[in-house]
Amino acid sequence: MNMTDTNSSSTAAASAPGRRQGEVILDLQNISLRFGGVKALTDISFNIREHEVRAIIGPNGAGKSSMLNVINGVYHPQEGRIMFRGEERKKMEPHVAAQQGIARTFQNIALFKGMSVLDNIMTGRNLRMKCNIFQQALWLGPALREEIAHREKVEEIVDFLEIQHIRKTPVGALPYGLQKRVDLGRALAMEPQILLLDEPMAGMNVEEKQDMCRFILDISDQFGTTIVLIEHDMGVVMDISDRVVVLDYGKKIGDGTPHEVRNNQDVINAYLGSGH
């Protein structure tokens, strides 16, 4: 079976219930990333289509997080090209990626601990706020109107994620599961085109996982956001993703629909050890 054949995978994914797949929005070609002498990623190519849920899986240390960091500009690969909407992307800083509509959440929650839930999510609106520093200093007219307009948007997200009751709590004081939700909320507030989720369900109990799955699927359905997901829970990955790419030791060993990946011998070897 040819795992890298995008045709076969897209036809298979089209059968996934109720979801569309559009054009290729992000195309990663032959990406290699090294830290000094350590190879984190070697010659990896895969693409991401609009509106799909794309999972990246692999054992610990496979380079999954590094892959996300390459996509949103935190790391700069030494080799390879990244095509965004058909144009080659130059080496760029994370905030430029954010301007292009790429948002992400973090594996070890990277919230702003000293700020309230509302303020955390409001930072996600930052790119859309245009008032200058003098208007903000006086808090009159345009600055006030802008602040309120964005507050309304943020309240929608608060409602969507069902965190109304903790609006004004400092995030440092929240339990883990809720922090993960706020992290997601902050990324959503950017109204991103591509949403990168780094282990959104790590360390959660079954109930919290179900909630999080529901949110992810709702985001995909309601906003049509393209979602790239790293996750260890295979059940979750198989259930919610359209296509899966499998990494091991920084190399791609599989790519396709959940069904195809599940039956890929390389993938089975990587997960269970080659003895099987």
Partner: peptide, 19 residues
């Protein structure tokens, strides 16, 4: 909020688009 974001977690701040 930008200042506090930089203070609390500068990498995350940059990732959500704060220069």
């Amino acid at each position: 909020r930008q200042w506090m974001a930089i203070r609390d977690m500068d990498v995350a701040a940059e990732v959500i688009g704060i220069r």
